[in-house]
């Protein structure tokens, strides 16, 4: 019964003092927040740290939540900001296939995949790999659009940009993703995608 409650009802319950209900909100959104964090952190430990930090920040700021937008959009804004801050602190190097120096790393990725016969057969494994090779912003837009089922306007709100800019960025990100998939799969691309 509790599972059927909307995000709004759960937030109201938390604000009225039933703080344990917040666990339900966390369970509902943790996979997506964690996936978003993975787009920036590139390793599970850091991604978990970012995701946990996001939920704690969201809890502290829950009183300021306006019921005019989706809770998910509000939460993803916090996630994006937290992840960006993390990135600045850690100064993680981002990968791009356009850079010659990254070729070695990409080849390593491919050899990792060759070692795993099960993953080799999976188009989704290559997709995940290709997303990891994108710039964090590109990966974020694609993730929000397809996995978060967010509209261009909602993504724009999350990433503090205009929806027209997001539309252009989404087009470019998908083109880059296609290129990276083709690069990773090489001859197999036509069979798998």
């Amino acid at each position: 019964m509790q599972e059927q409650q909307t995000d709004y009802a759960l937030i109201t319950a938390v604000l009225e003092g039933n703080t344990t209900v917040y666990a339900d909100l966390v369970k509902r959104h943790q996979r997506f927040v964690f996936t978003m964090a993975m787009r920036f952190a590139k390793n599970r430990e850091d991604a978990e740290e970012i995701a946990q930090d996001c939920f704690v920040k969201a809890y502290k700021a829950l009183g300021t939540f306006q019921y005019t937008s989706k809770f998910s959009t509000w939460l993803y804004t916090i996630t994006y900001t937290t992840a960006m801050t993390f990135l600045r602190k850690k100064k993680l190097s981002t990968l791009s296939l356009n850079d010659d120096e990254n070729t070695v790393q990409i080849e390593n990725h491919i050899s990792d995949y060759n070692a795993n016969s099960i993953e080799k057969k999976s188009g989704y494994a290559y997709l995940s790999q290709a997303i990891d090779l994108l710039l964090p912003d590109d990966a974020m837009i694609i993730t929000l659009f397809y996995m978060g089922e967010q509209s261009l306007e909602e993504i724009a709100q999350t990433m503090h940009m205009e929806s027209k800019t997001i539309k252009v960025k989404l087009h470019r990100a998908r083109t880059r993703l296609k290129e990276k998939l083709q690069y990773l799969l090489k001859d197999e691309v036509k069979e798998l995608i």
Binding site: V14, L15, T20, V26, R31, F34, E48, Q52, V56
Partner: peptide, 26 residues
């Protein structure tokens, strides 16, 4: 495409941290 799955203790870890915070008020 499927979403990534955090560790099994993720929710518990968040709630442990949340317990240390002041309860939010509207």
């Amino acid at each position: 495409a499927e979403l990534e799955e955090p560790s099994m203790s993720f929710t518990r870890n968040v709630m442990d941290q949340v317990k240390l915070e002041i309860a939010p008020i509207a």
